[in-house]
Simulated assay, not measured.
Amino acid sequence: MDNETAGTRLPDMVDIPRNIRTRREQLGLTRADVCARAGLPLKWLVELEAGDAPLSRAALGGLAVALETSVTALMSGTFGTQRTIRDNPSVPDVRSLIRMSENECRARLATHEVGRLAGGMEHVPWVLPVNYMSDGRDIVFTTRPGSPLAHVRGTVAFEVDDVDRYARLGWSVLVIGVAEPVTDPVEIARLKEAGRDAWPARHGELWFRIHPGRVTGRRLRPRPSRR
């Protein structure tokens, strides 16, 4: 995993604050220097290094760029001889939206449990949040009887994103597919077992499956730093 693909692995918040501080001191940078590079608030970085501030996947990528290292190194604490942005002047000093491959989109979908389902475009459009999980190449979700989603059928759009307003980084994945109910008791039992740690089971819940026809996504490339 590199700076641009932060988001497919959950960070370890026990070691990362220490690793960030170690790398910053290794470069001879003050906290203010790092915040100026990454466009982050100083108070947040002070709290982060003390282990008192949350760190999202997107912010981790931005810090890696500001500290001229990789996300992998910040997670592992291994700071050997590394190629930095100063060694690669061809890196543009601009943020840009990068199209993600389908595999990267699916990897990011697997890190979340809540998305937005949209449908009804031919009548009255609607968008509703749903708990979900990946099942092979499909997306499965549950709803209660009587919910507006209880009768969802046919083509739908499903969207998941992760945005960090401090680091001004993020990504978004969009799935266009066909939704259908899951009615096989054996299949439902398997899905319940697979999802029992994802969200609480509800009596009489209805299960649905989305067969993706198109999976696309974009991420915002972190802004390279300069010295």
Rank of each mutant, 00 (worst) to 15 (best):
residue 27 L to P: 08
residue 213 G to W: 02
residue 77 G to W: 05
residue 131 N to Y: 14
residue 226 R to A: 15
residue 114 V to P: 15
residue 104 E to L: 12
residue 93 D to I: 00
residue 75 M to H: 05
residue 204 G to Q: 02
residue 190 R to M: 02
residue 16 I to N: 04
residue 156 V to M: 14
residue 51 G to R: 07
residue 157 A to M: 13
residue 117 L to I: 15
residue 181 P to E: 07
residue 129 P to Q: 08
residue 77 G to H: 09
residue 201 A to P: 08
residue 212 P to F: 01
residue 85 I to S: 15
residue 227 R to Q: 13
residue 159 E to C: 03
residue 213 G to L: 13
residue 162 D to S: 11
residue 93 D to P: 02
residue 28 G to Y: 13
residue 16 I to L: 07
residue 76 S to D: 14
residue 118 A to H: 12
residue 217 G to D: 11
residue 128 L to Q: 15
residue 138 D to G: 04
residue 64 A to H: 02
residue 66 A to S: 08
residue 88 N to E: 13
residue 156 V to D: 15
residue 15 D to W: 05
residue 115 G to A: 04
residue 135 D to G: 01
residue 165 R to C: 04
residue 122 E to L: 13
residue 133 M to R: 11
residue 2 D to V: 12
residue 136 G to P: 03
residue 1 M to C: 09
residue 110 A to F: 04
residue 12 D to I: 04
residue 30 T to N: 06
residue 3 N to E: 14
residue 58 A to D: 05
residue 135 D to T: 00
residue 177 G to S: 13
residue 40 L to T: 05
residue 186 V to E: 05
residue 126 W to R: 14
residue 12 D to E: 01
residue 142 T to N: 07
residue 171 W to G: 06
residue 99 R to W: 03
residue 73 A to R: 07
residue 170 G to Y: 03
residue 48 L to H: 12
residue 68 E to S: 11
residue 115 G to D: 11
residue 30 T to K: 05
residue 18 R to P: 07
residue 57 R to I: 14
residue 203 H to P: 05
residue 23 R to S: 07
residue 140 V to I: 13
residue 227 R to N: 12
residue 220 L to Y: 00
residue 146 G to Q: 06
residue 5 T to A: 07
residue 200 P to L: 03
residue 222 P to H: 15
residue 99 R to I: 11
residue 169 L to K: 11
residue 161 D to L: 09
residue 44 W to C: 14
residue 17 P to M: 06
residue 142 T to K: 03
residue 79 F to H: 02
residue 13 M to Y: 14
residue 194 A to P: 00
residue 127 V to K: 04
residue 33 D to E: 09
residue 156 V to I: 11
residue 176 I to E: 15
residue 187 E to Q: 06
residue 193 E to N: 05
residue 97 L to E: 00
residue 126 W to T: 13
residue 4 E to T: 13
residue 58 A to W: 00
residue 93 D to G: 06
residue 6 A to D: 05
residue 94 V to S: 08
residue 125 P to Q: 10
residue 140 V to S: 07
residue 138 D to Y: 07
residue 42 L to F: 02
residue 23 R to L: 09
residue 219 R to G: 10
residue 206 L to A: 01
residue 223 R to K: 14
residue 92 P to R: 08
residue 183 T to Y: 02
residue 158 F to E: 12
residue 39 G to E: 00
residue 125 P to V: 15
residue 195 G to F: 06
residue 124 V to M: 03
residue 227 R to D: 12
residue 153 R to V: 04
residue 98 I to H: 10
residue 125 P to S: 08
residue 184 D to M: 05
residue 158 F to W: 04
residue 28 G to K: 11
residue 61 G to W: 04
residue 138 D to S: 14
residue 116 R to A: 00
residue 193 E to M: 03
residue 212 P to W: 02
residue 129 P to D: 12
residue 140 V to Y: 12
residue 149 L to I: 08
residue 141 F to Q: 07
residue 101 S to V: 13
residue 163 V to R: 04
residue 200 P to V: 13
residue 38 A to E: 09
residue 75 M to D: 13
residue 127 V to T: 15
residue 113 E to T: 10
residue 181 P to Q: 04
residue 100 M to W: 04
residue 180 E to I: 00
residue 108 R to P: 01
residue 82 Q to V: 03
residue 101 S to L: 10
residue 50 A to D: 09
residue 40 L to E: 03
residue 169 L to P: 00
residue 63 L to W: 11
residue 204 G to R: 06
residue 137 R to M: 10
residue 6 A to G: 10
residue 175 V to K: 10
residue 210 I to H: 12
residue 97 L to N: 01
residue 2 D to P: 02
residue 118 A to V: 12
residue 93 D to K: 08
residue 9 R to H: 10
residue 181 P to M: 00
